[in-house]
Every structure is written in structure tokens, then in C-alpha cells.
């Protein structure tokens, strides 16, 4: 609910009411989709990496369910970020794509999500697949600081960050407030979808246990009623 509210207010505000940019005109408005998805994509990968660490060290089955549920979500977020980035790049930079450090490392993130997903599908034993994916997820976390600092460490076409936790945003509040709403909304959306996916994941993984059988029986009874 919170996600729907935040995202709709932020998007409508950002796309329709926030002022146009003095250089880019209306093109910059795609930022209201591009930035939240890119941030959540990276956070979701970090979350998958931490879940991988927990699985490898503490062997918690729940961590593996979470990691598995993050893959399609993180993949979608990364894909949307890259796609909106291309749409933004064409009118402003003059090109859809450039192999600079930021865009390339973000493409690597997309391939990491694809790789973790494919690895899970390729191994038939749930336990082995989980551990293999955890190793890949943990190792892939090295890419996250590279994405974040790529625009500071190297010369890139992509501009530096406009908003951060530590310094003032490089735009007036009429522009950054809707952006902030959309970032929070995207996190809520991610949280809501992830929770529901994890719930389903637990039921699928524990389908042969007594408690799942009881839950399912309860559901069936309720449906009849």
C-alpha cells in the first residue's frame, strides 16, 4: 500500500509537476524512474550477497529462499535502470549506449543476476545450488562499490551522483522531493514483492512437511466456506 502511494505521488509529481531542467528540458524527468530502480537494483544485490554469506556460514535455509527470490526482482530493476538510461542517453548524450565505467559495471550487474539465476537452474540439488549461488553472489558484491564509485574514480560520460546521504542534493527541492518519494516507494515495492515471493518460496521448499500440509488444508477449508 505504502509503495503504491509513494510511487504514484512521486511519479505524477516528478513527471507532471516538477519543473523542467534548464539544460535538458523534459528529458531529465526519466530520472524519476531511472534513479530509484538503479538504487534498488544495487541494494537488492547487496541483500542477496549478505543472504549468501548467512547461508554459507550459518546454513540458514531461509537465507537461501530470500536469495532465490531476489534474483528475478533484482534482474528486472537492473534491466529497467539500463533501459531508462538508454532512453535518457539518446536525447541528452546523443547515444543510446556507451562503454564507460558506469554503464559497463551496471551491465555486469545484470549479467551477475542472470548468472546466479542460471546457476540455480543448472544444479538439480537444492542445497548444492543454494551454496553455489551464494558463493557467486558474495563474490559479485565486489562489483557494487565499483558501480557506485565508477563515476568518481574514472572519467566517464555518465554524470556524478546528484543525491547522497552525506551532502545536499544538486537540485532544488521541487525536483528532489518527488525523486526521494519514488526511491522510498521503490524500496517499499521491492520489500512487498520480496516478502510475498519469500512466503511462496518457503511453501514450495517445505511442501513435503506436515505444517505446510496443514496450512494448505486450512486454505482449502476456507475456500469451501
Amino acid at each position: 500500500m505504502g509503495a503504491v502511494l509513494l510511487l504514484s505521488v512521486g511519479t505524477v509529481w516528478g513527471l507532471a509537476f516538477a519543473p523542467a531542467d534548464y539544460q535538458q528540458g523534459n528529458s531529465f524527468r526519466i530520472m524519476y524512474i531511472h534513479v530509484p530502480t538503479a538504487i534498488v537494483a544495487q541494494s537488492s544485490y547487496m541483500m542477496m550477497g549478505v543472504a549468501g554469506l548467512i547461508l554459507l556460514v550459518w546454513r540458514m535455509k531461509l537465507a537461501d529462499v530470500v536469495a532465490a527470490a531476489i534474483v528475478p526482482l533484482g534482474f528486472s530493476m537492473t534491466l529497467i535502470a539500463l533501459f531508462t538510461g538508454a532512453i535518457w542517453g539518446k536525447p541528452t548524450w546523443g547515444t543510446w549506449w556507451i562503454w564507460d565505467a558506469r554503464t559497463t559495471s551496471m551491465l555486469v550487474l545484470l549479467f551477475l543476476f542472470i548468472g546466479v539465476g542460471a546457476l540455480r537452474d543448472a544444479i538439480s540439488s537444492v542445497e548444492t545450488a543454494g551454496r553455489a549461488c551464494a558463493v557467486l553472489a558474495v563474490v559479485g558484491m565486489i562489483n557494487i562499490p565499483i558501480i557506485k564509485y565508477s563515476v568518481d574514480w574514472w572519467l566517464t560520460l555518465h554524470q556524478s551522483s546528484s543525491i547522497s546521504l552525506t551532502s545536499a542534493p544538486t537540485m532544488p527541492s521541487s525536483m528532489w522531493v518527488p525523486l526521494l518519494l519514488n526511491i522510498l516507494g521503490m524500496y517499499c515495492f521491492f520489500g512487498a514483492v520480496l516478502t510475498s515471493a519469500v512466503r511462496t518460496g518457503i511453501l514450495i521448499r517445505e511442501q513435503n512437511t506436515v505444517w505446510v500440509a496443514e496450512v494448505v488444508a486450512g486454505e482449502v477449508d476456507n475456500d469451501v466456506f
Binding site: 523542467a20 541528452t92 546523443g94 546528484s162 532544488p172
Partner: peptide, 16 residues
């Protein structure tokens, strides 16, 4: 080929 690089500062035209 010439590509335009824009910076991270955004501003409404009136403010400019």
C-alpha cells in the same frame, strides 16, 4: 562523433 556530457546539477529554467 561528438557526444554531449551533462553534469549532475539540475535546475528549473526560472532559477537559471
Amino acid at each position: 562523433e561528438v557526444l554531449a556530457k551533462h553534469d549532475e546539477n539540475y535546475m528549473p529554467p526560472e532559477l537559471q
